[in-house]
Simulated scan of single mutants.
Amino acid sequence: MAYNEFLADRVSQFLVEKSVPFETKKMMGGLLFKVDDKMLVGVNKDEIMARINPDIYEASLLKEGCNKMNFTGRPMKGFVFLSDEAIDLDENLHYWLQLALDFNPFAKASKKRKTTKK
C-alpha cells in the first residue's frame, strides 16, 4: 500500500461534508486531492502533504507533527508534511485541511504540460 486509504477517505469525507468539488489523481505512489485544478493536499503513506499559506508557514512548523516538505533537499515554503501527531484526531485533520482550503483560491495552478504526438 503506497498510501493510507483510510486517511484518504477521511480527507474525501471532509471535502464532501464541506460541499467542496474536488478531484483525485494518483501520483508518485500517493493520492493527490485537487480543488479548482490546484493541489490541495496529498496522501503519501501515512502522512498528509498540505499546501498552506506561505505567510503562516514558519508558525505552522512549530505545531506538533508539522514538518517541512523536503523532496529535493530544499524545503518548499508553503508545503508541509503532517504526521500522525498532527492529524490523528478529526478536529486536527480538519484544521489543516481548512488551512489548505483557505489558501487554495490564492495558490497558483501548475502549468499544464504540453504533450507531443508521435
Rank of each mutant, 00 (worst) to 15 (best):
N4H: 09
M49P: 01
K25N: 14
F14D: 10
V41S: 02
A86K: 10
C66A: 14
L82K: 02
L15K: 06
V20S: 05
N92R: 10
K68N: 03
F6A: 13
K63M: 03
M76K: 11
L89Q: 15
N53W: 03
M76Y: 08
G73L: 09
E17L: 14
A2L: 12
D90N: 08
Q98E: 07
M49N: 07
E23S: 15
F71D: 04
Q98G: 01
S83Y: 12
L62R: 12
K118S: 08
G42V: 08
K25M: 12
G29D: 09
L93D: 04
A50S: 02
D102E: 15
L31W: 09
K114D: 10
K77D: 11
L61D: 06
D36K: 12
K34G: 13
E5D: 11
P54L: 05
L82A: 07
A8R: 05
K118C: 02
F71K: 15
K63V: 02
I87W: 01
D46Q: 09
K45I: 14
D46R: 04
K34Q: 10
K68D: 05
R10E: 14
L97F: 14
D102C: 00
E17Q: 11
Q98L: 00
L101M: 05
F33H: 01
N53Q: 03
I48N: 02
M69W: 13
F6N: 09
K114C: 11
L82D: 08
F71N: 03
G29S: 08
C66G: 01
V11P: 00
T24E: 02
F106K: 10
M49H: 12
P75G: 04
L101A: 05
L7S: 02
K25S: 15
L7D: 05
R74Y: 14
K77G: 03
L93T: 00
N53L: 05
K108Q: 03
